[in-house]
Amino acid sequence: MRIIYGLILLLFLLTKPFAQAQNGIVVFQSDFGLKDGAVAAMKGVALDVSPNLKLFDLTHEIPAYNIWEAAYRLYQTVPYYPKGTVFVSVCDPGVGTERHSVVLLTKSGHYVVTPDNGTLTLLAEHLGISEIRQINEAINRRKNSNESYTFHGRDVYAYTAARLASHTIRFEQVGQKLPNEVVRLPYQKAESTKGVVKGNIPVLDVQYGNVWSNIPKAMIDQLGIKPGATLRVQISQNDKLIYDKVVRWVNTFGEVSVGDDVAYINSLLNFSVAVNQGNFSEKYKVFSGPDWTISVSK
């Protein structure tokens, strides 16, 4: 009986990481755009591994080489997918260099196949690192692709993700285990001191030009400002003041006139500013990235 229990326990331990990749979903993100066949090529490689995979797109409109935005879009999206989903993120200006190609398993049970170039900054911080492995390209690389040095998204990442999601390989077969640390991009974290809340502009609500911050609603609440009241918003890039105005904080855009500046809480429950039915980013030349800072006070 002890032998049977021992075998059951051993089987559980051996299949635990494997079981977290059971859903067969692969989600792609890149800065490739959709003007050519790059995205389709990655999906073709994945389907060639297993035609039973379920393939989805996060976005392929990451601005070229913008690792920071790739990091944010993963943070914005990954938690909403089932455990075991495999993400492929390719924003890789250093393709072919010595940066590591890795698969991260978050503490939430999601896999991310990507270059370790800062793309994992926010996932590591918010979801945590359960384990990280370097892709062994001697095993996990598309056949006859060794002479290609500039399309790891197709030849390494899509191929490895498909093999993992389709159960062709176990997580341990990705490659050697690495220390639980990733390359991290520095940025202004949300903080509150002496009646001023300060944070970063990680990304724009690009369709409308709204400016999203990483300042949670709870920090604004601590200022004692109620919706309908006004607050002061200052925006800087590398310590150069770009915007400094008093605006109304509201629950909905309909509470102000068309063309008015407005402060609100976005869908991620973070502080944001906009021009009602206008484009805040274009109007004030405010953009996003680790070098942008936003401050809020009474």
Rank of each mutant, 00 (worst) to 15 (best):
G228K: 14
K285T: 14
P202N: 02
F271M: 13
F87Y: 11
I242N: 05
G278M: 14
V182L: 12
I25Y: 08
G24D: 00
P290T: 10
V174A: 06
R2M: 10
Y81K: 02
S272R: 12
T160F: 10
D31G: 02
G195I: 03
N214I: 00
G209I: 05
A218F: 12
L268G: 05
V286A: 08
A38I: 09
V211A: 02
L10M: 10
V211H: 01
E191D: 13
V113S: 04
K285S: 14
A158W: 11
G33N: 13
H152Q: 09
R2G: 11
P63G: 09
S213A: 03
F12Q: 12
I4M: 01
S213V: 05
S236L: 12
V49P: 09
V102D: 03
T85N: 04
F87D: 00
T114N: 04
L204S: 03
V196S: 08
R248V: 07
I265M: 15
N23A: 11
Q29E: 15
L55F: 13
D260I: 05
L105A: 05
S50L: 03
K194W: 04
D260M: 07
V196Q: 08
T106Q: 04
L7R: 03
K83E: 13
Q207A: 13
L55V: 15
R133T: 04
F253G: 04
S50A: 08
T160I: 09
G109T: 01
V26K: 00
F18A: 08
T97M: 13
L10G: 02
F171E: 00
P216Q: 10
L9R: 11
A229N: 13
D291G: 04
T293Y: 02
T230C: 03
L223K: 00
Y159G: 04
H100S: 12
C91N: 15
R2C: 07
V102S: 02
Y159E: 03
I225D: 01
Q222T: 10
Q20Y: 14
A124F: 12
V26D: 00
M42C: 13
Q237D: 00
K226C: 07
V88T: 06
P17F: 14
L269M: 14
Q76Y: 09
P179S: 08
P179C: 07
V26Y: 08
I265D: 07
D57E: 08
R133M: 05
P186S: 13
G37H: 12
A190Q: 05
L122T: 04
G24A: 05
G109E: 04
N117Q: 10
T160D: 06
K240P: 04
I25S: 06
L7I: 13
T252L: 15
H152L: 06
N214G: 00
Y5P: 03
A21Y: 01
N66E: 15
C91Y: 12
A263W: 12
S213W: 09
T85D: 03
I4R: 05
V273S: 12
V103L: 05
Q173T: 01
G175Q: 09
E191L: 11
R141W: 03
T119I: 15
K43Q: 15
W68G: 00
G94I: 10
P17G: 06
I135C: 02
N117S: 06
A40W: 08
T150Y: 14
V26L: 10
D221C: 05
F253I: 07
A40G: 11
T252Q: 15
A274Y: 11
K283T: 15
T293I: 11
V262T: 15
